[in-house]
Amino acid sequence: MDNGWEASAGPWIESLGAAGDFGREHVLDAPMLARVGHGRFERMLDVGCGEGRFCRMTAPRVRERVGIDPTRALLDAARARDPEGRYIEARAEALPFADASFDLVVSYLSLIDIPDIDAAIPEMARVLAPGGTLLVANLNPFATAAVPDHRITDAAGRDQLVVDRYFDERGAWTAWRGIRIVNYHRPLSRYMNAFLAAGLQLTAFEEPQPSGGDPARVARYSAAPWFHLMAWGRPVP
Rank of each mutant, 00 (worst) to 15 (best):
A92C: 04
G50L: 05
S110A: 14
D82N: 11
I68T: 15
E84F: 02
S110H: 07
E93R: 07
R91I: 07
G50I: 12
D116A: 07
F97L: 04
T58L: 08
L104E: 10
E51T: 02
A92K: 06
L95A: 02
Y108R: 10
E64W: 12
P60D: 09
L111P: 13
I68Q: 07
E51L: 01
E64I: 01
G48Q: 09
I114G: 09
A78C: 01
R81S: 13
V105T: 12
A94R: 15
Y87I: 08
V47C: 05
E64G: 02
A59F: 06
D99Y: 01
I112C: 11
D69C: 03
I112D: 13
E89V: 12
M57W: 14
Y108D: 14
R86C: 14
D103A: 03
D46S: 06
D99C: 06
A92M: 04
P96F: 05
V106A: 12
A100W: 12
C49P: 09
D113I: 09
R72W: 08
E89K: 15
I114H: 10
A90S: 11
A98F: 06
L75D: 06
A80V: 09
A94C: 10
V105C: 11
A94F: 08
D69E: 09
T71H: 06
M44E: 05
D103L: 00
G67N: 11
F102M: 00
